[in-house]
Every structure is written in C-alpha cells, then in structure tokens.
Simulated assay, not measured.
Amino acid sequence: MDKIRAFFEVHAFGVCTALGERLGIATTRIRMWFIYISFLTVGSPIIVYMILAFWLNMKRYITAARRNPLRDL
C-alpha cells in the first residue's frame, strides 16, 4: 500500500499540494475530500482536477520561459 501511495504522490500533478499551500490546509485533508467527493458524484471532480493540473502545468511553463530570456539565443 505504501508503494502505491508513494507512486501517486511522486507522479501526480500536484494539484492538491498547490491548493493546500494556497489555502493553508493540509494536503492529506484535501486529497481525502477529493476522494470522498469523487465517490459521491461518480468521478466528476476528476474533470476539474485535470483542468487544474493543465492550468498549473501551463503556469509553470510560462514562468519558466520568463525567467530565462536568453534561452532562445
């Protein structure tokens, strides 16, 4: 069970961590609520999770491109 949890923590998009840091809530609590809500609503929060993951990935890409203006030279 620990190997599975470690795999998902390493390979996840970091949406729950970003929300936890931004809102000041423990990441484990956000993950548990996400799981509970996913079971109750038959997986519809997964769509919201993917949208947030895409947004976070684009945000990292844009900030990385701004940090290094000489990258294209």
Rank of each mutant, 00 (worst) to 15 (best):
W55L: 13
P69Y: 06
F39C: 08
R66Q: 15
W55P: 01
I37S: 12
F54N: 08
G14H: 01
G20M: 01
D2S: 13
L73W: 07
F13R: 05
S44A: 03
I25M: 05
R22L: 11
H11Q: 08
P69H: 04
I47E: 03
L70D: 02
L70A: 01
M32Q: 06
R29P: 00
L52K: 02
N57A: 15
A26W: 02
D72H: 12
V42E: 00
T28Q: 09
A12F: 10
R67L: 03
L19M: 14
T17Y: 05
C16G: 09
C16I: 06
S38M: 04
A65M: 10
P45I: 05
A64H: 08
Y61K: 12
T41L: 14
E9K: 05
G14K: 00
I62P: 05
T27K: 09
I51V: 15
A65L: 13
N57Q: 15
I25P: 00
Y36K: 09
I35E: 03
A6M: 03
L70I: 00
W55R: 13
D72N: 07
F8L: 15
H11R: 11
V42M: 12
L40P: 06
P69M: 06
C16T: 11
T28V: 09
A26R: 11
V15S: 01
R60E: 14
V42R: 03
M32Y: 04
F13A: 08
V48N: 01
F7W: 10
I25C: 01
P45S: 06
T63H: 06
V15G: 00
V42D: 02
G20W: 05
L56I: 05
I47S: 10
F34C: 07
V48H: 02
I62M: 14
R22K: 10
K3N: 13
T28H: 04
R5F: 13
S38W: 01
R71N: 08
Y36S: 10
F13G: 02
A12R: 15
Y36R: 11
R5P: 00
K59C: 01
M58W: 15
F7V: 00
R66L: 14
D2L: 11
P45Y: 04
L23H: 09
A6H: 01
R71E: 09
A53F: 09
L56G: 11
M32S: 02
R60P: 10
W33C: 04
T41E: 06
Y61R: 12
S44E: 00
I4C: 03
R66V: 13
F39L: 14
W55C: 10
I30R: 03
F34M: 11
R67C: 00
A65T: 10
P45T: 03
F34L: 12
L73H: 03
F34H: 11
R31Y: 03
I62G: 03
I37H: 05
M50E: 00
R60F: 12
D2Y: 08
R22M: 09
A18N: 08
I25T: 07
Y61A: 14
I51F: 15
K59E: 14
I37Y: 10
N57W: 15
